[in-house]
Design a protein around this nucleic acid. Structure first.
Lengths: 244, 244
DNA sequence: ATCCTTGAATTGGTTAACCAATTTATTTAA
DNA sequence: TTAAATAAATTGGTTAACCAATTCAAGGAT
């Protein structure tokens, strides 16, 4: 029984100066799992051993491992140790912070997922919106227009609120949650495509209006079509400069 | 400036015997925020004060607050205190565990969100699937059939793996992540509707096969239609017994 | 009165020692 | 040689003291 798939060793050699040991441990283990160097069931070195090996304190190691357990990446058992968990599903936040996939690729995946949600939310909103929902959407549109035609740099934030109001109008809390998970990383990504306006941006206000009209009149098909056109254009902007 | 929207007090009166102080604090604060008793900006009592008030240790209080910060529900600033965060978007897991919404309603929202993702993933999978993707999907179907026709109780789990393989075939990691967030709680929810088979369950294997055929032949429209039929039926089962 | 200085009190963050349960190694008895 | 008994070492978990930074209030100079 002494054999068993046990502890690895020098995979955690200290590197450089570690400004944030906790973050380093998390990203390192995540990387090792992704690359397959750490297979499910593999036991990690003890918290004390890891701390010494990384020239850090046990507290930092512990915080990192606790977060990894929360992520579902490892299983911690008292007196038994910490092992790589069996089947692990990543959260969106994990994926965004993960290493192996290129930044552009992740952004493309994010935009595509949001595209899907946007279109379906528009359709459902047209079916179910209450008057209060419609009122909120129109308020958001006003805010967006003010930011858009003003010199405000925050029109992306306002655009987000507009789309979020549509998601809210579906009455489905889960959809709102998914939506809000996807958008902040997009908004804060400082994608050069998004930040600066150019000729095409003039389309946005009228496209928004089409969507609003469809939702007001309760026409799911029209809403779906309007949102598809609106978002398809945004998607293309991202995909340009990188093949799928 | 001494006024300010500050600390509340006896909202944290100790109740009964607290077996798990950490979980209690998390659920209590979540509840207070949901009910509006704690508004954004409100400062919570200090960790020491909370610990004494709840007859627990500072460590437990601290762990709870750290998790709440991770959830985005509170903002912690050293030497300044812990305050309710301004705009808070709930994660799916939070929503599932939240109190105010009825269980059936949450389940309906979950199913609807999964329906949307399922259909769109089927469409994209038909467009992009590699041979390896198709192979995995067929493997999952075999596993499902074995569990379905055998006396195994795990056929729901196998069904999940089948659908997950389709999401994987889109090549979009974000979609896979969203999908995996939505599905496990459905499987484990012990919905009486789902747990026991009845006459309608016999449709599942052939519906799966239709989806596979559409994905193999690269027909997005067919895949979308097949998945819509498959999942629409599941949706109806949930909505029966509660007007949406 | 008003503003600035100053020092005590309070805040979240960190550290190291300690704990109980388990595992591993050693010793002892058959 | 084998198996049981026992002691030592190791594990994650917890606690309490300590820390630096900040806040807040009292005191004094203008």
């Amino acid at each position: 029984m002494s054999k068993e798939s046990t502890l690895d060793l020098s995979l955690f050699e200290k590197m450089k100066v570690q400004n944030d040991p906790e973050e380093f441990i998390i990203s390192r283990i995540r990387e090792l799992v992704h690359r397959g160097d750490l297979k499910p069931g593999t036991r990690l070195p003890s918290e004390r051993a890891l701390a010494e090996s990384l020239n850090t304190t046990r507290g930092s190691v512990r915080k990192a491992l606790q977060k990894l357990e929360f992520y579902g990446l490892v299983d911690i058992s008292p007196q038994s140790g910490t092992r790589i968990a069996s089947l692990h599903q990543e959260t969106v936040e994990e994926l965004i912070n993960s290493i192996p996939v290129s930044r552009n690729r992740k952004m493309a995946d994010l935009m595509e997922a949001r595209f899907i949600l946007d279109v379906q939310c528009a359709r459902l909103a047209a079916e179910r919106r209450t008057d209060a929902d419609l009122s909120l959407i129109e308020t958001r549109q006003e805010g967006f227009l003010k930011a858009f035609y003003g010199s405000s740099e925050s029109f992306l934030e306002e655009d987000y609120l507009f789309h979020l109001a549509i998601a809210h109008a579906t009455g489905n809390h889960i959809l709102v949650s998914l939506f809000s998970q996807l958008t902040p990383p997009i908004v804060t990504s400082n994608q050069p495509h998004l930040g600066q306006r150019d000729r095409d941006f003039s389309r946005i206000p009228s496209e928004h209006q089409k969507i609003i009209d469809a939702i007001r009149s309760g026409s799911p098909e029209e809403a779906e079509e309007a949102m598809t056109g609106h978002r398809n254009w945004a998607l293309k902007r991202i995909f340009e400069g990188e093949g799928k």
